[in-house]
Design a protein around this nucleic acid. Structure first.
Lengths: 228, 228
DNA sequence: GGCCAACCGGAGATGTGACTCCGCATACCG
DNA sequence: CGGTATGCGGAGTCACATCTCCGGTTGGCC
């Protein structure tokens, strides 16, 4: 314990207490890339051995870089979150006309589709490190929602948690159909977006509390990983 | 092998080759009920021991009644399917005005919500025994869809696979939110139903092939269970 | 009541997958 | 170029979950 004096407790992100040796850094990348592939193909319960093998390293290396399988998963989803966040910023800027929400949701869908399996975690609980980025993503989406409502693209009684539910919905569909029909999520997103548009008929059920979104951002321990 | 002469290979349904002894039949029921509870609470990867314990029987009994954990899961989802099918028939009859689709989807949502965890299987591949019931459910939904379209409740370019996607969508949401906000699926269903209603703007993405639904009914082996 | 097939319990056998340990190799510093 | 901290591989450990086996028990029929 208390190895905070060494090169870095690592585990989630490359924090430069001292930079990793060249080969070590390279292997870290290789591992992340392999994990990315394997999790996308097999799903979250892919074997750790397969990942190490595909990265061309031994088990020891994997576990020195990521102290636990969970940490690997987390590091990976953090990386993806960065990508998503960056692209979301771009899209938000390029579509200030109220279409931004639609664009970002479509992008998120495509990310889910290409990494189905390793992304459950992205929309669930997370270690505190990532909180700020996650919060930024949601506040960005909140802004886009407001813009879309202002521009008359989206009905006024929609809330951020409805957007959150839309994402969960896409994840569920991707999970079940990625193998046999990898593009159907787009169709369903069209249906949801149609449901988002203004209408004279009110939504019958009251909106969920936005705490739903914030809980997803801040919950201390992953529900699902506890159940295993 | 070839024990077809005995009281019944069992495993999926109580098929009376010879009726089970009273205590055996009772234990079978107890096991199903316990499995129902435990799977609903913990999810699909709940331990078998917990189920046996809660049913008040030993492991041996469990495995004599259901030759495999998978068989237990299947028997359970078959039972639930029966319930759903029966209620769906009633609802379809009671709402011949085009509102039937909405009613049945709401009912399915509530079933998903009360048994999140043991129901993945219901909407996935299944052993051939259940095929006819599954097919009936979908043809029933197809009828309701047509009725709803005829009555102007639902847009004309909607297909059965869109209904299927709606169900998958609900499942995804229930899976992630059952713990902290067990009713939000209703809100999302409202959004989907709003998207189902007629509109002057066409859905941008083409509908999925209805083979998607039929594949879900007839696929020989469960994808997910193969991945484990 | 007596007999036997059917049934019961629960302690292991078996298999799987996460994680560790340690002798050897390699990059970096002077 | 030599010394050492850092990193590497992969066989072995450990924990856990599913499934089997068998000595003892029980329900149902004569």
């Amino acid at each position: 314990m208390n190895d905070r004096t060494t090169a870095g407790p690592d585990g989630t992100t490359a924090r430069p207490g001292r930079p990793l040796r060249r080969d070590a850094a390279e292997n870290r990348e290789r591992l992340l890339r392999a994990a990315w592939e394997v999790f996308a193909e097999v799903g979250q319960d892919a074997g750790v051995e397969e990942i190490a093998h595909r990265a061309g390293v031994g088990m020891g290396t994997l576990y020195r870089r990521f102290p636990t399988k969970d940490a690997l998963l987390t590091a990976l989803s953090d990386e993806i979150l960065d990508t998503v966040l960056q692209r979301a910023r771009e899209l938000a800027e390029a579509h200030a006309d109220g279409k931004g929400l639609e664009q970002v949701l479509t992008y998120i869908g495509s990310v889910l589709a290409s990494h189905h399996g390793c992304l459950t975690r992205l929309w669930q609980a997370v270690p505190p490190t990532a909180d700020t980025r996650r919060a930024e993503l949601w506040s960005l989406l909140a802004g886009l929602l407001e813009e879309a409502q202002h521009g008359g693209e989206v009905r006024g009684d929609l809330t951020l948690s409805d957007v959150y539910l839309a994402v969960l919905s896409l994840r569920g569909i991707v999970d079940d159909t990625a193998g046999r029909a990898p593009e159907v999520w787009r169709r369903h997103l069209c249906v949801i977006l149609a449901g988002f548009r203004p209408s004279d008929r009110a939504l019958e059920h009251p909106p969920a509390d936005d705490a739903l979104v914030h809980a997803a951002v801040a919950t201390p321990a992953a529900r699902r990983s506890a159940a295993r």
